[in-house]
């Protein structure tokens, strides 16, 4: 690995860790506020555990697929890389679609972010994660363009590695959203 790549890799890790701190503060806010329902709905009234389990498994599979893409790209296996990345994109987009479906359902019932401190912290935390997923999908779209034009160059292989790092990171954040936002308040 040359010096430039090493710096880029370290820079990405630095960004990811600072993003962790951002999410940690949003998690802390949620943990403090999830009981502050202001007469509005409580977590048990609006969360559907099976729906969230489906979201979780879809995002996990997407993360796994991006890992496979790194392996295939490293072996210069063109078809495998494309299939794995397209699967990553499709599963990620499905996840985002499900999340938006949940959000729009809540807002339509009058349970938007302005309803209570609980809902404000919920939308901020889960919405920030969703925004990261959306950014990841844009990144992946740019990667598709790059690969279509230039092919599986060493640069493309490195970029797939960076993307996959970001994508795994978002799945790790989701483990904690699944546990702290959805499962613990339902006990």
């Amino acid at each position: 690995m040359d010096k430039h790549t090493d710096h880029a890799h370290l820079g990405l890790w630095t960004y990811l860790m600072s993003d962790c701190v951002l999410f940690a503060s949003l998690f802390a806010a949620y943990a403090v506020l999830y009981t502050a329902t202001a007469g509005g709905p409580a977590p048990a009234d609006i969360f559907h555990p099976r729906f969230v389990l489906a979201e979780t498994l879809i995002l996990l599979t997407s993360s796994f697929a991006s890992g496979l893409a790194v392996v295939f790209a490293g072996r210069q296996h063109r078809l495998g890389t494309w299939v794995a990345l397209l699967a990553t994109f499709a599963l990620g987009a499905t996840f985002l679609g499900l999340e938006l479906h949940e959000f729009s359902g809540l807002v339509a019932q009058g349970y938007g972010w302005q309803r209570s401190a609980f809902l404000s912290s919920f939308f901020t935390l889960v919405g920030t994660h969703g925004l990261h997923i959306f950014t990841g999908l844009l990144w992946l779209g740019a990667l598709f363009l790059y690969m279509a034009v230039r092919g599986l160059t060493p640069q493309a292989v490195r970029r797939i590695g960076y993307f996959s790092l970001f994508w795994h990171f978002l799945d790790i954040i989701w483990i904690f959203i699944f546990t702290i936002v959805y499962l613990i308040p339902l006990l």
Binding site: V21, A24, S25
Partner: peptide, 18 residues
């Protein structure tokens, strides 16, 4: 080092807040 630093900051932030 980065991971450890992030873990320490997160620990202080979340633990301290709660």
């Amino acid at each position: 080092l980065l991971l450890t630093l992030a873990a320490v900051i997160i620990g202080i932030l979340v633990g301290g807040t709660l």
